[in-house]
């Protein structure tokens, strides 16, 4: 008997443990996933609405500088959130029942198309977000105490750096996935 045949026999003698799941649990989990997707949509919608309401609440549209500053920050954030949402929705729609090669190809194309988001859209939107913040600085300086103004500058620099590092890690992770798929 050759080596592989021996391995195969051993493999088949080995009992695979069955999950203790019944059909009701599966239906329940499946419905729970659908519910969660609905909740995500609602949360996203509410977030966009709150940001817009905040924009009007602070009457930013009356002051040109504040209008552009806040508008750029809220706009770029909303665009990026919506882009991410639709991108993940696209991936979820790939039929899992197609053959492995076709599914893999679809995933490769998906992650390649995401490079456009990572290399073009994310830096542009991130830059416009930071630019919007910079536009708001004179408004902050005018309306806030020196201490609080300094606090805002220091904390925002830390946040921007942390955000840039986080985005960098995410991009690297996705590039590794593309490599493993090919």
């Amino acid at each position: 008997m050759n080596d592989f045949q021996h391995i195969k026999e051993q493999w088949q003698q080995h009992q695979t443990p069955l999950p203790n799941t019944n059909i009701n649990e599966i239906i329940e989990r499946s419905q729970e996933i659908k519910r969660k997707q609905q909740i995500t949509k609602i949360v996203l919608g509410i977030t966009v609405l709150i940001l817009m309401a905040f924009f009007f609440y602070v009457s930013a549209y009356k002051n040109t500088r504040a209008f552009w500053g806040l508008g750029l920050m809220i706009g770029s954030l909303c665009i990026r959130i919506i882009m991410e949402y639709f991108s993940s929705l696209k991936k979820e729609r790939f039929p899992l029942y197609q053959n492995m090669l076709a599914f893999n190809q679809q995933l490769v194309n998906y992650y390649k198309s995401r490079r456009m988001i990572h290399y073009l859209w994310t830096p542009v939107l991130f830059a416009s977000y930071v630019f919007g913040f910079v536009l708001l600085l004179p408004v902050f300086k005018q309306q806030l105490s020196i201490g609080f103004f300094k606090y805002i500058i220091v904390s925002s620099i830390i946040i921007f750096i942390a955000l840039a590092v986080l985005i960098g890690f995410q991009v690297r992770k996705e590039l590794k996935i593309i490599k493993s798929l090919q």
């Binding site: 989990r29 499946s30 996933i33």
Partner: peptide
């Protein structure tokens, strides 16, 4: 493996 098997059952049910 059990978690993954459950995940597969859910996907089969969904599709």
């Amino acid at each position: 493996a059990k978690d993954m098997a459950q995940e597969v059952f859910i996907k089969v049910w969904q599709y």
